[in-house]
Design a protein around this nucleic acid. Structure first.
Lengths: 186, 186
DNA sequence: CAGCTATTGTAGCAGTCGCTACATGATGCT
DNA sequence: AGCATCATGTAGCGACTGCTACAATAGCTG
C-alpha cells in the first residue's frame, strides 16, 4: 500500500512501519487477550498480512515486545529530569508521582502483564521486562545524589521500593506505599 | 430458574465441593487463559454443570477469586512463624526467602495475574488482590519487633520492599532486590 | 405409586482463534 | 516484452470459546 522506496529491504520496512501501530493497540487494549484480527485492523491491514510479515503470532509478539522495551527506554530520559536529585527519598517520590499520572497507565498495565507472563515462564515477556527494569535502574544509578555514600546499593534499595509502590498503585492501595516511603529515611 | 432454597441447599454444597478442585487447576495452569471445559475436566464434571452451578463464567471466576483469597489467608499463619522477629530486616529476609521456595511459585504466578488484571481495571481481580495484600500487611503489623519505634509505618515500609522484591523474583532479577535490602537498615 | 423438582447428559449454535491454500495484482530485473 | 518474485485479497479449515435448548434421570414428597 504505502510505497517504501527503492533501497532497503521491503519486508523489513513493512515490519518497522507496522510496529508502532501494533504497539499503540497493545498499550490501549492490553497484551493478555490480544488476537491477530483486531491487531491487524488497528494497523490498517489484515491478519493474513501480519502473518506474512512476522511469520507467526509468537514471532510477532516477540518482536513487538522488543520494540516496546526500546520505546520505553527512549521515553525515560524524556520524562524524567536529568539533574541529580537532592535525596534518595526525593527521587523515589518524584518517580512514583510521575509514574502515577494518567499517561503512564497504559504502560503500567503492560508492565504488569509482562511481570505476570514472566512469572508464568514466558521467556519473551521476561526478557522484555528485564530490559525495561534495567533501563530504570540504570537511570536511577546515574541520578543518585552526588554525596550518596552507596550509590549502587542505594539505587537498588530505591528501585525495590519504587516497584513495590507501583504494585500497590496497580491494586488501588497507593496509600500503603506512601506511608512506607514516608516512614523514615531510605 | 434456580430455586432459592428450602433446606441446606444442595446447590451450595456442590459449589463448595467444586471450588477446591477449580482452585487447584487455576494454581497449576494460571488464571489468564482459563476456559470452562478444561476447568470442568479438572473438577470431574462438564462445562454444562459449571454454568449450572455458577451461572456464568464471570460469576464462577468471582467466586473462585474469593475462595483463593481465603485460601491464602488460611495458609499464611501456617507458613510463617508466630513469634515476633528480631529486626525489620530479619523479617523481610525471612518472608522473601519463604516466598521464593518452589511451593509458592503457583501462588506467585496467580498473584501477578491478579495485579495485572487489577491494573487493567478488573474489579474482581482488584478485590481479591487487595484481600491478599491486606492479609500479609496485617501479619507484618502483628509480628513487628517489640521495640520498633514505628510499627505501623515500619510494616508498610517492609511491605513495600517485600512486594518490590517479589516482583524482581518474578522477572528473574532477585539479586537486585537482595542488594537493595542489604544496603543499609530498613 | 404418582408427581414434582433438582440435577445431569447430549448436541449444538454462533462466534473467534491462529493459520493456510489459492489466485491475483504489482514490481522489478534482464 | 517476458518472466520471476513480492505483496495482498478471498475464502476457508479445524479447533476452541461461552452458552443454551432439549430431554432424560434421580431422588424426594405427597
Amino acid at each position: 500500500m504505502v510505497k517504501p522506496d527503492t533501497l532497503p529491504v521491503k519486508e523489513r520496512m513493512s515490519r518497522e512501519m507496522l510496529l508502532p501501530l501494533l504497539a499503540d493497540h497493545v498499550l490501549q487494549h492490553g497484551l493478555a487477550g490480544v488476537s491477530l484480527r483486531p491487531l491487524a485492523k488497528a494497523a490498517g491491514t489484515s491478519d493474513r498480512m501480519l502473518l506474512y510479515h512476522f511469520g507467526s503470532k509468537d514471532a510477532l509478539l516477540a518482536e513487538l515486545l522488543k520494540y516496546l522495551a526500546d520505546l520505553y527506554a527512549q521515553s525515560l530520559d524524556a520524562v524524567f529530569p536529568s539533574e541529580p536529585a537532592a535525596s534518595r527519598k526525593d527521587t523515589v517520590v518524584q518517580v512514583v508521582r510521575t509514574t502515577r499520572t494518567p499517561p503512564f497507565a497504559p504502560f503500567m498495565r503492560l508492565w504488569w502483564e509482562l511481570v505476570a507472563g514472566a512469572s508464568g515462564g514466558n521467556e519473551h515477556y521476561r526478557a522484555s521486562a528485564q530490559a525495561m527494569m534495567d533501563q530504570l535502574l540504570g537511570w536511577l544509578e546515574q541520578h543518585m545524589p552526588i554525596d550518596d555514600p552507596d550509590p549502587v546499593g542505594g539505587a537498588r534499595r530505591m528501585f525495590t521500593i519504587i516497584e513495590g509502590a507501583l504494585m500497590m498503585d496497580a491494586v488501588g492501595r497507593s496509600e500503603i506505599a506512601d506511608a512506607g516511603i514516608a516512614a523514615g529515611e531510605l
